[in-house]
Design a protein around this nucleic acid. Structure first.
Lengths: 188, 188, 188, 188
DNA sequence: AATGAATGAGGGTTCATTCAT
DNA sequence: AATGAATGAACCCTCATTCAT
């Protein structure tokens, strides 16, 4: 039933946007009465949060799982396949992802979104720390480098799926991989 | 009077956030009656759009102006100073910018935001076309390369101002410049 | 319009009791839309308070006015006519008075009602202080004596009108006057 | 089980006030499910009524018991000790009493409260009839005299406990006794 | 008897929009 | 042009009550 509510809420979010997502609509979409929502969630925001949490959990675990199986591959391989994994994970619910990107900033003052980014950032920092040798310089903290990369990758991936620019999936992954790897290349 | 309404709306948006921006508040801030708003704008969204348009116009013209005076400088200089110009332009109204980032996607289904990005993208494409020599390959359309760079730069700049990570302005500009230039570097 | 809302609210209060007094009902009774209530009152409690305030103001001013014109009459006359004045004032809106008595305790934790009693108590204290000579003893503070009398008179008057026991108005006034005066009589 | 529900309801009433007393809370406090309440009571009001009934039964029986053991004492003693008994009986559950006073009027249109007062009034009438000699006049029916006294005593006692004015228990009992006895004193 | 999830009408309140003045 | 009182649909949420299990 929790699932049913989240599914319904997700559908409403996708169909009507954040402002169009009323508790009554969610209840109707779930085929239950408005009051029943409150047996499972304390309020509307909790529902929205749970929807986004579920989504971000799926993403994080897919990427983490993939990464943990690749840790000893050469960086270009790790990065390229990880980006592919992220892209494909996001591509499962492109509509939800659009909604999430557009509306998550308002939930808990965006804490939810920031948490997700934090988790991915930690992952990237961990990887870069392990592969400290590929970093071009010591002048910039690893966390800052990770911050640059994570934001870039996250945003470009999302926007690629939403805008569908004139690039094939593989071309896009090539570009994104190059962007990332070149960023780490030492100056000549 | 149009200006007055936009100023008032912008102030309310900055002070009270998107959800706190009611038409009544805007009218009060503008020193007119709620009904009078509708003499100048068909509805609330039109006001919000106009506020964001004005902001994006300011940005575009500052960057365009700067770029046109730098066209013949060496690319590293052009890019670094252009990024600085963009960063500083955005930094004038960080609160407004936050509001814009969080809420623009919902206005007109995001058409507004896309328009702005289109304009900046065209600018970048024009520059890259002129400097076609610095591109690493012909396999990827220039517009796609511009798309990658524009999204990256735009998003990182915005997030830098909002998140204020542990990087000084100059460090950040260094990183962003390197990210951009390295992206264009040919493979070894 | 304020008056109209208060009248409507008063009617609804009388007809449906405190719990039956919804803002929607008040609005309907006033012939306006629910939203309009909030142009004149910040919330429901403010409406309820205003209704009771209006009622208690009427009472207080009638009694005060009467008392100020009688201050130099002999105590039995003052008391008897004052009680009559109070009884008649309360009798104007017996239904409202019932509602007030039954439901006022819940408003602001009863602050409203207490305020009214405070005002009447002050009046009584003032009178007793002026006529200190009729008090039987100095052992009890005047304010306590006033407290006893005010509660008694208020409650009996109210209950007389609501319960209509087997006493004529004049008999009741006789009894109430005797109760009050005898309370002040010195022991033999 | 009936007892258990009443105990639970009473506790909730005392702890959370009338508006905070939901059937769900009562059920939880009683350690049963909401649905089970309706096996023992037809609806919420019946529960509330039963709680107040039980309370008023306790009061009546304490006072009756006391009175029956004092019938042949001199009136000043009977009255003083009876008032003391009532005061102490009410003081056992001041919070419950407050709830009772504030909300009893609304139950069954106040029938419940009136019944209680009727019983106490009958008691007083019986006593006064037995001691008819102490009445100052025959012009007023005994029941009316009892009505005056019962209301006064009941209300003052309740209010004394709720308002806690600047009077000790004994001072208050002195005053209340004097009020009652003096009311019955013949005019000079 | 007992459960407790489900109900759904109704609660107070907001606010973009309108329209008589 | 300008007003601002009035609108009313929609918001989120509560809770006494029911009924399939």
């Amino acid at each position: 039933m929790l699932e049913r509510i989240l599914d319904a809420g997700q559908q409403v979010l996708v169909d009507h946007g954040y402002d169009g997502t009323s508790t009554n609509r969610i209840a109707a979409a779930a085929g239950i009465s408005p009051g029943s929502l409150y047996q499972y969630f304390p309020n509307k925001d909790a529902i929205m949060s749970a929807i986004l949490d579920r989504f971000s959990d799926t993403l994080t675990s897919r990427v983490t799982e993939h990464l943990s199986g690749q840790f000893d591959q050469p960086p270009p391989v790790v990065i390229r396949t990880t980006l592919a994994e992220l892209l494909d994970a996001l591509d499962v619910h492109p509509e939800l992802q659009r909604a999430a990107v557009e509306h998550a900033p308002r939930l808990d003052d965006g804490r939810r979104l920031r948490e997700f980014e934090q988790r991915v950032g930690d992952l990237a920092t961990a990887y870069l720390t392990a592969r400290r040798d590929i970093l071009p310089t010591d002048d910039v903290p690893i966390s800052a480098t990770a911050w640059m990369i994570v934001r870039t990758v996250e945003h470009l991936t999302v926007r690629y799926l939403l805008d569908r620019p004139a690039l094939t999936r593989d071309q896009f992954l090539d570009e994104l991989t190059r962007l990332t790897l070149n960023y780490l290349r030492p100056p000549t």
